[in-house]
Design a protein around this nucleic acid. Structure first.
Lengths: 212, 212
DNA sequence: TCAATTACATACATCGACGAATGTTAGAGG
DNA sequence: CCTCTAACATTCGTCGATGTATGTAATTGA
């Protein structure tokens, strides 16, 4: 085929990224061939090597299109407000809903968590993920600290540990849903799940003392 | 080399599984070659094809050696007792500690969660994982039901949802630790983490009402 | 003791993926 | 109108991995 104008070029690039999502989702990263991606995008491998350096570069570009939920959470939760606890709750719910309803985010997260191997060329992805985790937990911790200041949470609360636990809970829910999406309706139950987990934020209560 | 007696044969098989753990852990499943595994076990590929049908069969045999923590939890938590809540707590702590201290379990879980792609030939693993999840959540639900009977938990507790949330929390912690093992000492903090999460089991409390 | 089998090692055939090199066409610029 | 270059398509060489086929020495059972 012949040359396209710049506008069409960007369209081709987007098609390639869409195709990469689709193909990687169904066959996994290392199970997919660039030929598969090219066919899915109705072009040839030549087009891929024009827009991206190699398979890994294509993958990273695909990941870049969707922000990880933890990064979104980190950004949203840091803005100041009167009710930091309710804010943390709402952001958490929004993260879960976004994961459930945004098909692009869902596909990419599935690829990241279940359809690629975090070794070798993927070390870059692993490092980005790790940094995002640290950042996210840090933001949660800030929200908790502000909640303590306002008096919504007890001053005895172990901030770091609580932030970690909350993050683990959210990622656990997301991971499980990505693993069995048909098992339950995450979008509909997001609020209930988060509300059920909220008591965690009060710190270890009398329940554990009672048990002995 | 020549033939070994049956005893040595089993030893060779075990060496191959050990080598598979090591190699898959470092290079990922599809990133590893059977030649790598054979070399790590000080044999040749011929030995692998004698003991296992192919690469996937070797992988499955490797996974079979370690029970998934969710399966262990499921089995341990189902035995009757006077204090079901404390029992759930202790089993949860034990699961986390086991994951942190048993190097074999840790390696294999890392491979399962981060070093293999759940597609194609791995569908068998995916189905086993899914079944294990369902089973585990079911056992947790049973423990919670008994705790309600004994009066340790309110009768209004949504059993299924609570079991799901608890499972998500545990898997979230395990996943995060496998992802950043050097970030914190899971074995030392297992009890604290579980205790912090215990209030979740009381159901959605007044905290969420307070926020509006 | 001797054949049959075990437990591997070695050799081979096949196949597919990557990346690079080259070919091709249509717009942009002068 | 002509050239140059962007945006691909096509072709090719290479290499590595899988699976199979064959070789072989020790062991076991009769």
């Amino acid at each position: 085929m012949a040359r396209k104008i710049r506008e069409d070029s960007l369209k081709t690039r987007a098609q390639l990224l869409d195709a990469a999502e689709e193909v990687f989702f169904h066959k996994g990263f290392s199970g997919s061939t660039l030929e598969d991606v090219a066919r899915a995008a109705s072009v040839t491998r030549g087009a891929i090597y024009w827009h991206f350096r190699n398979k890994t570069d294509l993958f990273m570009a695909m990941v870049e299109r969707v922000r990880l939920p933890i990064e979104a959470l980190a950004e949203a939760a840091c803005c100041e407000g009167k009710n930091p606890l309710e804010q943390l709750r709402e952001v958490s719910i929004r993260i879960l809903r976004e994961t459930a309803t945004n098909p692009r985010r869902r596909r990419v997260l599935t690829v990241i968590f279940q359809r690629c191997e975090l070794v070798g060329e993927m070390t870059e992805l692993e490092m980005r993920q790790r940094a995002a985790c640290v950042d996210c937990i840090g933001r949660i911790e800030q929200s908790l600290a502000r909640a303590v200041e306002v008096g919504q949470l007890p001053p005895t609360l172990p901030l770091k540990q609580t932030a970690f636990v909350w993050h683990a809970f959210l990622m656990g829910v997301i991971n499980h849903w990505l693993f069995s999406p048909e098992a339950f309706d995450l979008a509909a139950n997001a609020a209930r799940l988060v509300d059920q987990a909220m008591p965690m934020l009060q710190g270890a209560g009398g329940l554990t003392q009672q048990a002995a």
